[in-house]
């Protein structure tokens, strides 16, 4: 349980980190290290160069700007969970962060780290997709914004180029009459989800569903949007019959994996159950 040998590099700016990424093949950014180090110790991942960005100043922050919340890449899950801005303006992200692993992990793990790791069972990526969040990627030739829907490409694979780092994570300030819920089915608190659901529901002044954003975790190689469920909600009064009927569509377009905690068939069924519960919970949280 000791990693293979590697070179340790510690840049003092993000620009320098990008240069190092560009210079060294098989290099990897170290932020919170909560997934990377575990994989290295198992020798399942063996980057030749570890670029430790944790000492770069100014990368941990939460700010509100216009209708967006800007989050520094090194902001820890604990900070995200407890940030008053996030709790008030985008509570689902705080809720998702609170469900990650345990307190020690939340003290170290970072928001950009979990997004870049792109584990489809992880809590934040699923929520980030439902939020239509954005990642600001910084590369040798400048910056670009990547939308959540484009960001997750496969297991552990994102749209970042090998020589890009995440400079900032952005999520929207949620509009009024919005209710959110992130829930997961796991055998132990803090485990990777068997199925996770993030639901964001906005009603109009007549309490008709104006928008619905539902994403599912642990049912495919990336978090997935339950588009058919969303479509079955928008434009309707969300009676329980509507919610139940819509949730039945949650297994459309998913390709769940199997493991000892849940077969693919079970996960498909749980996707429906937890979609229903997440929508109900989100709806119940919409304030007057």
């Amino acid at each position: 349980m000791i990693p293979r040998s590697f070179e340790y590099l510690r840049p003092s700016t993000l620009q320098e980190a990008v240069q190092l990424l560009d210079k060294y093949e098989e290099s990897k950014i170290l932020a919170g290290g909560q997934s990377l180090i575990a994989l290295m110790k198992l020798r399942l991942a063996s980057p030749k160069y570890i670029i430790d960005i944790t000492r770069i100043p100014g990368l941990s922050y939460v700010k509100e700007e216009g209708n967006k919340i800007l989050i520094g890449p090194l902001t820890t899950h604990d900070t995200v969970e407890n940030s008053p801005i996030i709790r008030n303006k985008c509570p689902i992200l705080s809720e998702a962060a609170s469900r990650i692993g345990d307190q020690q992990i939340r003290n170290r793990g970072t928001i950009a780290g979990t997004l870049c790791h792109a584990d489809p069972s992880a809590d934040v990526p699923t929520t980030f997709l439902a939020l239509d969040g954005e990642v600001v990627a910084m590369g040798k030739d400048g910056e670009r914004v990547i939308k959540a829907k484009d960001f997750f490409q496969d297991f552990f694979t994102t749209a970042l180029n090998p020589n890009e780092v995440v400079k900032e994570v952005r999520v929207p300030v949620l509009p009024p009459k919005t209710g959110t819920a992130y829930i997961k089915h796991a055998r132990r608190e803090g485990d990777f989800a068997i199925v996770a659901v993030a639901a964001i529901i906005t009603l109009d002044e007549n309490n008709v569903c104006k928008s619905a954003s539902i994403s599912l975790g642990s049912v495919g190689p990336t978090p997935l949007r339950a588009v058919e469920v969303e479509n079955a909600l928008v434009g309707k009064k969300l009676t329980d019959e509507v919610i139940v009927a819509a949730s039945e569509l949650a297994d459309r377009g998913i390709s769940p994996p199997s493991d000892i905690h849940g077969s693919a068939e079970y996960r498909a069924e749980m996707a429906k159950v937890f979609t229903k519960r997440a929508i109900r919970l989100a709806l119940s949280r919409i304030g007057g």
Binding site: L42, R43, L44, S121, F155, F192, P221, S255, P257, S258, D259, I260
Partner: peptide
């Protein structure tokens, strides 16, 4: 070995 025992969730897809 290692991959079979820790990688179940990813193995089949990969």
């Amino acid at each position: 070995g290692l991959i079979a025992s820790v990688g179940q969730r990813l193995l089949e897809g990969a």
